[in-house]
Design a protein around this nucleic acid. Structure first.
Lengths: 124, 124
DNA sequence: TACCATTGCGCAATCC
DNA sequence: TGGATTGCGCAATGGT
């Protein structure tokens, strides 16, 4: 904190014709200070904006996360059903499954491979 | 920016015995300023800490999401396999599946219902 | 050398 | 009454 030259030396002229160089420097100083102050404001606005966007990103990711968890529950449930089916018959004596006994309609209705989330599911 | 009473009026005594009340006020002012400055520092440290934690949270959630996406791919793949099996035989003439033809070992090896991510899968 | 961006810091106004 | 926040300006510093 050094150059705090306010109305320091006894300058008669205020800003009439900037006599020599002292006044010029003062004006320069003010100009520079003002520019920096504006730069500081810009920088701080940007900083706050970034902070807020980060918070929004967190919420966005949380929501996304919940949806994915739900989807996993659904898929796991379906898989469990199908596997139980296989196991049940695998443990039986004849080792065969009669397709007529199965209600595939409900199972295939929400086939994950053709849902709206196909972006991640269809890749393979 | 008003009360910038530094070495304003011509006070002879500096802090010897605080004559009446002027000096006292000055000392009080300084004490208050110093305390506020410390409070400001604490506040800013806390603020920066929170910002950083938020950034870490974002990365954490991103990682979590990727894992969930992968899991969904796996489950979808498995489901697709099982459903194709059903469909294939549903379209056949005999409508029966011979369990001997299936290799359930690989399928059941990584049963989602008994994996390490059981936290979300076992709930139902 | 000049310029803008960032950052630490103190002041004062407000908030709580 | 007093700490916590916040907007703001200054100066130092970083990065062209």
């Amino acid at each position: 904190m050094a150059p705090k030259n306010k109305e320091s030396s006894g300058n008669a002229s205020k800003k009439s014709k900037r006599v020599i160089s002292e006044e010029d420097d003062d004006e320069d100083y003010r100009r520079r200070r003002d520019r920096n102050n504006q730069a500081v404001k810009r920088s701080r606005v940007k900083s706050k904006l970034k902070t807020q966007q980060t918070l929004e990103r967190v919420n966005q990711l949380k929501t996304e996360n919940e949806l994915l968890e739900e989807k996993i529950k659904m898929l796991t449930k379906e898989l469990g059903f199908l596997k139980d089916l296989f196991l049940a018959h695998a443990g039986s004596s004849q080792h065969t499954i009669n397709i007529q006994d199965l209600d595939l309609s409900t199972l295939l209705a929400d086939d994950p491979r053709s849902s709206d989330d196909a972006k991640t599911a269809t890749k393979l």
